[in-house]
Amino acid sequence: MNLVLDALAWLLDSANWDGRGGIGARILEHLGFSAAVVAAACAIGIPAGVAIGHSGRGRSLVIVLTSGARALPTLGLLTILGLALGIGLDAPFLALLVLALPPVLAGAYAGVESVARETVGASRAIGMTEWQLVRGVELPLAAPVLLGGVRSAALQVISTATLAAYVADTGLGRPLFEGLKTQRYDMMLGASLLVALLALVVELGFQLVQSAAARRAEPHRAPSGARERISA
């Protein structure tokens, strides 16, 4: 347990928190970078997934992408893009986007797909335009599953952003790798604990948002819908 105490000591030492490259800056960097990737994945994946779910065209694309992405080794993707694009944030951004896109796409698609056919038919029958149907019916009812996809993507991105420090100078992976290289277990373990904590906080945050969405989609029997989860 000595190791853990050392790590905690490293974490609690205010000298390690300050300045460029300090823990505080690294946390912001990590979160900001992850948020940018997830936002980009949402900007592409949600419209595409909703369009596929709404029209029913392109289902097989979703299946191929999601199962393919699961098999693709993250580190391989990071290093090959790192070699191709050089040192900098482009390679990890692209690699993380490739990882984040399938769960977002699958969540949006599965969410819209899961809306009862009768509800969609009835909405058309009473004179909703396709756009009103998507906005007023399909999106709110799909929200819990859709958010499940975003949650999977966010977790994966936060997790892999740690690994991104292997090819670029960014995020909480940095002190972890530095500790690894210099045999400083306290630094390595402290950074690891911090990333784990960050991931747990994000996970819990998403759980709250998702159960709120489930309450809106199924106001009478929340929050069981919040448990929907797209495994990535």
């Binding site: 009862a116 009768e118 509800t119 038919g121 009835a122 909405s123 029958a125 007023g136 019916v137 709110p140 009812l141 809106r216 989609a217 199924e218 106001p219």
Partner: peptide
């Protein structure tokens, strides 16, 4: 419609 076809949300 049968069963009303109401919007559940």
């Amino acid at each position: 419609l049968q069963a009303g076809g109401l919007l559940p949300h």
